[in-house]
Design a binder for these strands. Sequence first.
DNA 1: CATGAATGAGACTTCATTCAT
DNA 2: GATGAATGAAGTCTCATTCAT
Lengths: 210, 210, 210, 210
Amino acid sequence: MTNSPSRPSGSGTRRQRLHEEQRRVQIITAAVEELADRGYDGLSLTRVAARAGVSKGLIWHCFTGKDDLMESTATATITTIRDQIANSLDLTAPVPDIIRAALRRAAALGVTQRVEITALNRITHNLRHPDGTLRLTVGTYEETYPAQELLFRRGQAEGTLGGFDTRVMAITYQGAIDMMLGYLGAHPHIAPEDHADKLADIPLAGIRRS
Amino acid sequence: MTNSPSRPSGSGTRRQRLHEEQRRVQIITAAVEELADRGYDGLSLTRVAARAGVSKGLIWHCFTGKDDLMESTATATITTIRDQIANSLDLTAPVPDIIRAALRRAAALGVTQRVEITALNRITHNLRHPDGTLRLTVGTYEETYPAQELLFRRGQAEGTLGGFDTRVMAITYQGAIDMMLGYLGAHPHIAPEDHADKLADIPLAGIRRS
Amino acid sequence: MTNSPSRPSGSGTRRQRLHEEQRRVQIITAAVEELADRGYDGLSLTRVAARAGVSKGLIWHCFTGKDDLMESTATATITTIRDQIANSLDLTAPVPDIIRAALRRAAALGVTQRVEITALNRITHNLRHPDGTLRLTVGTYEETYPAQELLFRRGQAEGTLGGFDTRVMAITYQGAIDMMLGYLGAHPHIAPEDHADKLADIPLAGIRRS
Amino acid sequence: MTNSPSRPSGSGTRRQRLHEEQRRVQIITAAVEELADRGYDGLSLTRVAARAGVSKGLIWHCFTGKDDLMESTATATITTIRDQIANSLDLTAPVPDIIRAALRRAAALGVTQRVEITALNRITHNLRHPDGTLRLTVGTYEETYPAQELLFRRGQAEGTLGGFDTRVMAITYQGAIDMMLGYLGAHPHIAPEDHADKLADIPLAGIRRS
DNA sequence: CATGAATGAGACTTCATTCAT
DNA sequence: GATGAATGAAGTCTCATTCAT
């Protein structure tokens, strides 16, 4: 059916023209915020568009659809966060120091990057293939483990870490961070570095060779 | 001879009650399965009713609405799982042994109760108040921490555990378990007890007084 | 996301409860009218629902979706029309008389059943599988040809019809009827029986054995 | 030596014109193919532009809008096809021979011009005014009838055709052709000339004066 | 002029929830 | 009390059309 043409809308906001990438960022930002505010299944593209201050249709101009937006959002966020942690670390330091520093950094990010982390988690735990299987979970963490293990093994080789199973340790480490972030998020009055330090005290005390 | 068997032994009300309760269980079971199969969004009450083999309207007889069903499902599942862990533990044993046993038990449940745990997580991470705030997460874990801390403090008092921060430890402990369950779920070929033992080795080695 | 409950709508029309079949007929009728009025791609389920005086959602309660509604509409209409032609014919009459009667009947239906025939044609020419191939065309006509051929062969055997190719004749016959109906539709002032008779005169004169 | 070859021989305007016309053809060609592939609804100007290898906006430079493109496409296609039939006919031959030749020609075109004919039909049956009435159907055929009738009357005057109603015959003739084309399209294994000849045998046998 | 980013109306569809039977 | 027909709000997505660049 032929659509009826839309009348010129009088005045209103001028039509902006940005580069594709800029629009994507704008929309992804709005998506991250919505995700943090209303959760994964509370997210509606209508609201994302409204929050980004663009028309609904633009979302399908920049992304394939909802899933693509979610996946792009996750990817972009992961990159941002990972860089922020990795770049701040001095990888030549003794392994225990690196770990402690990483925990502190993660705790700090849990505050400053609260929304991004929340959004990322929501996508990770909800976005799924048509067949029902999750789309990102496995990949997301799975990619992180090897790097962690490498670090742990270096510590073991250097004699600063004990002889634990590095894969199990990597998994546990992730779980500890996730939980810490959740807890810090729910308890804004707690000092992040403090929590991070106490967390670091537990395993490091144990795994540091006496 | 005590009673004529021809007369139903319970009162009408009692029978009602039983029926009512049976149906609730029936519906909750179906909800758990759907949740595990299709995720939180993706769940529709129509399908839940169909899977439970009851009519759509019955859900509103037994529950206030969708949110109530979700909350009831979460509560029921938590109770089931918690009991299964707690009942299997010998709380008079030395604390490190209790912890190791609890981890093993949790790992085992991650296999046998896979569906329930998945469903519980999905509700926990998605069900929220109209204003967007989560309805269960905080509360759920928050209730567990004191009991854990109590256990840890006993261990510290008895000299079997080191001087770590018990609250941070409780949080970390939860995170480690959650992550272990997720990992075991994604890697069915891994032996749960093995993973649990390796996990127990890490902190116990550290926190056991040398 | 939990939908917000709808407030009771004050008064308005009372909620009707009919049997599934009655509703289907009601909706199909509206679909036929819309199809005739606005054409296939001008048809919107929103308008069909409005015309039928029911809520939009009811359409998905009674049918699988748009395609199902279209297919059901076609099937129902075909049945109606075919019956109206077939039932009015005396199949024991000489074949030429049957043909002449059928043409008259078809012409008459072209007037009384105008909308149904139009609607049927629109569906037939437009409803297609996801891969782009038409869904009904072939089947629709293809089912009619054998019966026609049978009739023609009987006429040939009885010596009242000439030795033409019966399949080609059946196809041509259909085409002649379709075109006649289109023409009569566009020229309401023309007497249907008159046109039908003139049409019958052409081939019958030729194929009746002299 | 006449002109320096280094200077373009046509004027700027003329070049423009050529470009403009080339692009119209390019777009119309793409529209025809899309129409044949996906049907009338299912056609989107975005895809037409893509198939034509031009930008979306260009369509509104060359045409008023979708309806204009459709109408132009129909007109252009009609012209092409009609010419192909008319030009191949020897109008001085006896009328029955002309008819037979025209049918053969039409049947052949049904194969070689398959796409164009399909597209034309789709537009014809679907393009309509905002009020819902068809935009082309009536007109299209209506213009053909007089010429046909003229031919038939010549045959009647020359004594090679019988005394049938020429208008009804013209209508029937069109219907027979349309149906033949549809049938040949659905049954590619059938020889077009064969079908055309069998079709010609039917009425010609009847209307040729005995 | 041409391009394609941007818009907005409207299509189909799903689903929690209500309520006549 | 139980059923499932009916509703209506909201969601995802498509597309003709406009217009800044």
